[in-house]
Every structure is written in C-alpha cells, then in structure tokens.
C-alpha cells in the first residue's frame, strides 16, 4: 500500500464532508454508491519562434 501523508488542505476537508453527506443520501436505497471529487489546475508555458507564451 502507498504510504499515507495524512495532511490535507481546506479544499479536501470540505470535499470530504460534502461527499460523506451525499453518500448518506445516495446509499439509503442503493446497494452501492460512491462519489468522486476532482479538481485539476494546470499551467503551461511554451517558448518557440512565435514568442514566449504563458497560460496560468
């Protein structure tokens, strides 16, 4: 098993709380329910003959 770090951000804490509440609702009549929170931020910087470009 990968080693847990067990340090979380406010975003993760909020998502965990919300997902647990949602699971309580979804699981009432279902055999199985799950929930996934995803959030990805990206940045891309490129340099070529056209000039440097940044995207935050």
């Amino acid at each position: 098993m990968p080693s847990p770090t067990n340090d979380t951000t406010a975003e993760i804490q909020t998502a965990k709380r919300a997902l647990q509440q949602a699971i309580a609702i979804l699981s009432t009549e279902a055999r199985y329910a799950d929930a996934l929170y995803l959030s990805t931020t990206t940045r891309r910087i490129s340099k070529n003959k056209k000039g440097a470009a940044t995207a935050a």
């Binding site: 993760i12 329910a33 929930a35 995803l38 990805t40 990206t42 891309r44 490129s46």
Partner: peptide, 22 residues
C-alpha cells in the same frame, strides 16, 4: 525549437459507505 514547461496539481477525494480517501 519548441520548449514546453507544463505543471498540474490534481486533487481527488473518493467516498463510499466504507471508504474515504484523498
């Protein structure tokens, strides 16, 4: 020539009746 520097930061939280993972 093309030089690209990309970065990502991905957060995922999974919950089910028995699991709570981030």
């Amino acid at each position: 020539a093309k030089v690209v520097l990309g970065e990502f930061s991905e957060v995922k939280v999974f919950a089910s009746k028995h699991k709570l993972l981030s």
